[in-house]
């Protein structure tokens, strides 16, 4: 009994902080999402307006367009990060001179604040002074201008996300690969499996839990990307890179449309949960039930 009370006492600071910084804002956002609230409107007060913010969400053409480009962004970014991250993790499993150095260097993007990443990439992609348009021009003869071309802007945001977050995938896959027992791999060689078969039949299933966890983390992060993209393209040109996070930001801050912004946030949160749940049901649950 005594130790139980001590346990709660030790947990208390964390729980209090979590309560005020996690639970309270969460319910506050839900609360706000049921109100008309724009401090610079004719009526600056919060006015309860039932679910009309949610009704507006459904008819918001810009929101639907944002969702479309967001899904495309998330798909290309996360899939590329997974493939590239796995290849890098495999490379770091082998010994080569300077391995420790490269492993440290390659994790540097991870410790950068997204806003800094956005600024760096903005500098690198600004036409006439940036290194990237210059290289693209000299290698491929293409004129890269993310201020004009929607495709270029979209591609650069995807590449920036890959640059920023692939190291996370690499690190978690290295951890997964290192912890694998060597015997099943030697056994598979003896059982007649070639490299491709070993990957599909042994490696991938054995690191699947780590892969799925990494996909979850990256998926949730990518769905709420704001600052990097805002810094790099500001959501443009037009609304080519107005991903859902950017859309919410623009509704809430420049337009001070707090009620409507909160409603979109709640909907996006709900969608994120549903997507993760679908992934869980599709990828993890069958393995668990099969194993009893």
């Amino acid at each position: 009994m005594h130790s139980n009370r001590l346990g709660w006492l030790l947990l208390a600071p964390t729980m209090i902080i979590l309560f005020f910084f996690g639970v309270v804002p969460f319910f506050y956002v839900i609360w706000v999402s049921f109100h008309q609230w724009n401090p610079f409107a004719a009526n600056p007060n919060m006015v309860f307006n039932w679910a009309s913010n949610y009704r507006q969400v459904v008819f918001d053409a810009q929101l639907m367009a944002s969702l479309g480009v967001t899904f495309a962004f998330v798909f290309f970014a996360v899939v590329s990060e997974l493939i590239l991250g796995y290849l890098l993790a495999q490379a770091f499993m082998k010994d080569f001179p300077g391995k420790a150095f490269f492993r440290t260097i390659h994790t540097l993007p991870l410790i950068m604040a997204p806003i800094i990443v956005g600024s760096i990439w903005k500098l690198m992609t600004t036409p006439s002074i940036g290194i990237i348009p210059s290289l693209v021009q000299s290698w491929f003869g293409l004129d890269l201008n993310i201020g004009q071309s929607a495709l270029a802007a979209f591609t650069v945001t995807v590449v920036m996300d890959i640059w920023h977050w692939t190291p996370l995938v690499t690190l978690s896959l290295i951890a997964a690969l290192v912890s694998l027992p060597p015997d099943p791999f030697e056994q598979a060689q003896i059982d007649g499996a070639n490299k491709r078969q070993i990957f599909w039949h042994i490696t991938l299933p054995m690191i699947a839990p780590a892969v799925v966890a990494t996909v979850f983390i990256r998926l949730m992060d990518a769905l709420r990307t704001v600052d990097e993209v805002l810094m790099l393209t500001g959501g443009g040109p037009g609304s080519a890179t107005r991903y859902i996070g950017v859309h919410i930001f623009k509704e809430v801050f420049p337009r001070t449309n707090y009620g409507y912004g909160s409603a979109i946030s709640v909907v996006v949160l709900y969608m994120t949960i549903v997507i993760c749940w679908l992934l869980y049901v599709g990828l993890i649950a069958p393995r668990n039930t099969k194993k009893g």
């Binding site: 027992p181 015997d183 099943p184 030697e186 056994q187 598979a188 060689q189 003896i190 059982d191 007649g192 499996a193 070639n194 039949h201 042994i202 299933p205 054995m206 699947a208 393995r287």
Partner: peptide, 21 residues
Amino acid sequence: VSPKDRDISMVFQSYALYPHK
């Protein structure tokens, strides 16, 4: 010759079963 082409079978001390199969 690589192990897969030697036409041998091996039983390891740890058995090396595939845990997901």
